[in-house]
């Protein structure tokens, strides 16, 4: 096998457990961010949160529009 143990894993069981734990922590951290963001939103006027959201969203779509497809 060409790439046998390419990651040089010493203890597969422990490694997979670490991966699962890291996945769980990542999920929890992302969920915590969503909660913090939603709570911030509720403490912020519509004018302010939507102004910030507009900057982020519009930038993405402006870039997309510069990359117009050519008909095949």
């Amino acid at each position: 096998m060409k790439y046998k143990n390419i990651l040089k894993i010493k203890n597969k069981k422990r490694f997979l457990k670490q991966l699962e734990e890291s996945k769980r922590q990542n999920f929890e951290s992302n969920m915590k961010f969503v909660e913090l963001h939603a709570l911030w939103l509720k403490r912020t006027s519509n004018r302010e949160w939507s102004r910030r959201q507009k900057i982020i969203i519009d930038e993405v779509y402006r870039s997309n529009r510069h990359m117009k497809l050519k008909p095949a």
């Binding site: 509720k42 403490r43 006027s45 519509n46 004018r47 507009k54 519009d58």
Partner: peptide
Amino acid sequence: MEYTYSKKTITLPNKELTL
């Protein structure tokens, strides 16, 4: 954050519209 929310309608006054 201001909104009105009834069974049928939601409004978000002063929301800036995104693209």
